[in-house]
Nucleic acid binder design. Structure first.
Lengths: 348, 348
DNA sequence: TTAAATTGCTAAACCGATTTAGGAATATTG
DNA sequence: CAATATTCCTAAATCGGTTTAGCAATTTAA
């Protein structure tokens, strides 16, 4: 069973493929094609189950109606959720999504960007891990439509991005802990930590403890290598437990770190929150199910996705004319759960 | 900055685009192109940062090097993990992935299949939700390469599929509970339940309790509507708690149901496993972190993905000649954790 | 010295759609 | 009745690659 082409329809009807194309694209009236002819075309199209070859169409139109999404790892709950939201938003505009995982690897991300461009995607949404951001700079120079999410590049001006207010979120969470009476607060952050999201979260933590004039020992701020989260977190926790002063709270820089922390504390039989309070960036449905449930800084992924796609489509549609870039910072939600212990009542 | 085309390279060098194309595709020697010329082509290609338009290439070659993946919901941890494994496998073969979520909706899945065909994907991997499977039948008639995962259609013979042994997994899990002394074992299954995976899991449950000659009251087998898992599970649990006999174990048909069960039991302050033991299909990293940790029937997603992609690529490569279909059934792993209580020592 | 073989390359067709420019037949106008 | 306008449609170019068929110049063979 051979595929049905536009030409097959045209031949079978004894008209030109120009006519068929016009009718199928809704330009029948505009080009003065007889109603009767139009109906016959439509009918035959149905009958033969004609499916236009989008590849051919895209080549001619210079538009693939496909968007590329690059995240660190699609199997990560955070990105999976984001991908789903982005997928839905894209569908609304008639776009499809090619999803790729960069594994936080520079080389892989760069080659993914190049590959997606070769595939002629109309735009990119990137949660970039790049240190060497030259590929992004090229995108910008080429005026290629793209939006950064979750992380951005302060050193590249005038790029679209959608992020949460990482600094403020971090600062507020730590401030909450301080106000609850915690004096020795650790943060388990991640390395490489050139990512703006991580940097801002780190800075929020440091600024909050500095401002409160409590223990600002850098020993309390641990960098966990991305490649070996589980073991490194366990080692760090072990180290922290031996610290001269009693550490009573930990801030996790993301959900992966949080999972590892919970696992390690379980292993060392440290009770949350009685001995150590825990707050994490990123919320997972199951943080609520744990006993105790885990306090989280939740990113509104639907809002982020909505904005990212909207901006990207806008960028695509206004290609050529250089459009003013959108830089959206969305507030996060602090969700207080059982994992935080009040050491004293909050000062008024 | 205009895009560089094959022709631009050719013009700039004063050769034909045929030559350039041949060289870039590695057919330079075969066509007797001078080494010197070849080198010049390669050099110029680098210099101009030429990126072939894959759309044009695909159109000519009738091959997009793209695969479509349809799952119920990519934000679901199970499918996210599967998608990632499939992505990696595809990359090994030089393919990309368009991922789509069907939301377990017939109409949406059918239209996704049609859409992906229009996009000229070279093959499909589908975790199908279809009751009306006519779109699958069409695929088969057209000899369109596809592989079913997780679920298949017994009524459509000779289709590729990769699944786990749902019946046996379910049977064994329930048998384990029975052997541990449980007499009143509930199962929270899902509706619509036309899916082979669900049907087989249900059958395994029923056969195990029938064989053991214990309570086979159908009241213990609850169907949770897909659209309202949380509320329905809660209602079902409430009902089960009022049952004339004391229910001491529950089998969850998948991770979503399990999450809802854990939540509901937490709400009703029922202790796992002291009052009720829990086993679930599908393993999540966090099942291990819960207190108590949750026993699970784990699907080896890497093995499933590996097979699915391998079969699909094989199918794509042997297109035309009708290839013998692969039907792979992979054993699952039962992971015993703290959520199962021994009511008596296992009989010998 | 001429026919045959080899070397190194190219023109043009093709994939399947969209679009531009225009043509033939009929209807309307002056 | 000729000139113009309208109606309905089409041939051919185009998008950017790959591939087929073949050509001109040189080398080898007879």
């Amino acid at each position: 069973m051979k595929k049905v082409r536009l030409e097959d329809i045209a031949n079978k009807m004894g008209v030109s493929k120009t006519l068929v194309s016009m009718v199928l694209n809704g330009y029948g009236d505009k080009n003065g094609i007889k109603k009767e002819t139009q109906e016959k075309v439509i009918a035959l199209t149905r009958e033969l189950d004609y499916k236009p070859n989008q590849m051919a169409r895209s080549l001619r139109l210079g538009k693939s109606n496909t968007i590329g999404l690059i995240v660190a790892d699609i199997s990560n709950a955070f990105y999976a959720k984001m991908a789903r939201n982005i997928e839905d938003e894209c569908n609304k505009y008639g776009y499809n999504l090619i999803i790729c995982s960069s594994d936080e690897k520079d080389a892989k991300e760069s080659s993914l960007i190049r590959m997606l461009k070769e595939k002629q995607v109309d735009g990119l949404i990137i949660s970039s891990t790049l240190v060497d951001n030259s590929e992004i700079v090229v995108l910008k120079q080429e005026n290629y439509p793209f939006v950064l999410v979750d992380r951005y590049f302060p050193e590249i001006p005038d790029t679209n991005f959608v992020i949460i207010d990482n600094y403020k979120s971090s600062y507020k969470a730590v401030k909450y802990l301080i106000d609850s009476g915690h004096q020795n607060i650790a943060m388990l952050s991640i390395s490489p930590s050139h990512l703006t999201s991580v940097k801002d979260r780190n800075k929020g933590y440091f600024d909050a403890i500095k401002k409160a004039n409590i223990n600002t020992d850098h020993y309390l701020h641990c960098l966990i290598p991305f490649e070996s989260i589980e073991q490194s977190v366990e080692a760090s926790i072990e180290r922290l437990l031996k610290y001269e002063k009693k550490i009573t709270a930990i801030l996790a820089v993301n959900q992966n770190i949080a999972l590892a922390i919970i696992k390690a504390l379980k292993k060392f039989k440290i009770k949350i929150p009685d001995e150590i309070s825990v707050i994490t960036f990123d919320d997972l449905p199951f943080f609520e199910l744990l006993t105790p449930s885990i306090s989280a800084i939740s990113q509104p992924l639907d809002v982020i996705s909505f904005n990212a796609v909207k901006i990207l489509i806008d960028e695509i549609n206004s290609k050529g004319s250089s459009r003013k870039k959108d830089q959206v910072v969305i507030p996060s939600h602090f969700i207080l759960r059982e994992s935080c212990k009040q050491l004293k009542t909050k000062k008024t």
